[in-house]
Design a protein around this nucleic acid. Structure first.
Lengths: 221, 221
DNA sequence: GTTGTATTTTGACAGTTGTCAATTATTTTA
DNA sequence: TAAAATAATTGACAACTGTCAAAATACAAC
């Protein structure tokens, strides 16, 4: 009884909603960052965001509790739950906040292959420019952590939206456009993870070659 | 203090271990199904497995608690934790148990493209033959649930091992074999999800065409 | 500035989680 | 078959989770 209604209830009196799903995949957050936020809400969100970021540099994500976040941010637990469903939700908010840095640089339309490589390069570049962030994310964890999966899931989602725009007008392809976009964004993330975790000293040209080779059919290489 | 040692402690007196990571990705479970299990352990594992399976048909995974599982299986909570880290761990065990049905049918080696299509077809066939299982998995959830991600993650992992064996001897490819295998298994899962959730009435030939088209380069289609 | 309304915060609560030391059951050995 | 060793189970515990109704705060309109 206690748990059964957990997700059914929405605090309508808080300026907090569920982002409508676009048809390119799920990425739900309790707070709607596109909505107007009052000063107080902004202040509180910032406190939680910073608290999580700080906590992430101190211990691995699995060991971080909502209590930790609340102690750091100096808010009671109940306030936390006004803004976030759980610590995963806060994490997604953190990624979307950080992610703005990357996404703004990406051109909205253009050639498909060119666009893919561009997105990939921006992502790779971003992590090169933010080594300490990547270190935080993978500290005490491999590439196999909740933490990285959460971030890469977000990046895949954003890449998917961009890629979909690149190829939605192309009516020559023999597979559904949505599937094609999914394929492309999976590919980008796969090569990205390879570069970050398996071959960190790789140069960008080789990385691009890998991407393009796979793009043009892994078999007939 | 309480939580910090959570993963450091291993109950050595229980015949229960961590499966060594192979180098194709992570898939940890507390219990080692390859190890010999005593009669008592088998009986207990079975009870938990069935309890989870039954619970999954009744409510969505997020709402299922360890207490639910224990009530159904008529074991106390502490026994549950002797065998599993948490309910996710039990879920993975359930998939690996179910998964044996699929994996046994797959040939160990052969041509790359042929092999990929074969794996894909077996997976698609499996879910066609087990509609009620798929229905259970996606009941109350979309394809976006913890539940499906957990299962597809397991399938991707197994597909990855098989695919790696197909292409590990091919020294003509221009990308690292491990990356290539990752690419292939991502592709299989992507098309599988497409067929199961976006276009459930698709015929198997069209599905194979999608797979092969993407395999040979989505762009020059 | 006072009143009324909507937003934000809060403490307390019931339920869930994972752990431990102690107990019971099962298997092995003498 | 009795004792010893190993494996499995258990109840109780401390910490964490998510929710609620009530209190406090900000914010408008008059």
């Amino acid at each position: 009884m206690h748990v059964s209604f957990a997700l059914a209830k929405i605090y309508t009196y808080v300026n907090v909603e569920v982002i409508g799903l676009n048809d390119l995949g799920e990425f739900k957050m309790k707070i709607d960052v596109t909505q107007h936020l009052t000063l107080g809400a902004k202040r509180t969100l910032k406190a939680f965001r910073l608290a999580m970021f700080e906590a992430l540099s101190e211990k691995e994500f699995d060991k971080i509790t909502v209590n930790d976040i609340c102690k750091k941010s100096e808010y009671p637990r109940a306030t936390f739950y006004n803004y976030f469903d759980d610590k995963f939700d806060l994490l997604q908010y953190l990624w979307s906040y950080i992610g703005k840095d990357i996404l703004n640089k990406i051109p909205r339309d253009g050639d498909e292959e060119e666009g893919l490589v561009k997105i990939f390069n921006l992502l790779l570049e971003f992590f090169n420019d933010h080594q300490e962030l990547l270190a935080n994310i993978t500290k005490n964890n491999g590439s196999d952590s909740h933490l990285w999966h959460s971030m890469s899931g977000y990046l895949r989602h954003e890449a998917n939206i961009l890629v979909y725009n690149y190829c939605k007008d192309n009516d020559q392809v023999k597979v559904p456009v949505k599937l094609l976009a999914r394929f492309y964004s999976d590919l980008i993330i796969a090569v990205l993870e390879w570069c970050l975790f398996e071959q960190p000293e790789i140069d960008i040209n080789t990385a691009d070659e890998y991407l393009v080779n796979l793009l043009n059919g892994g078999l007939n290489a």
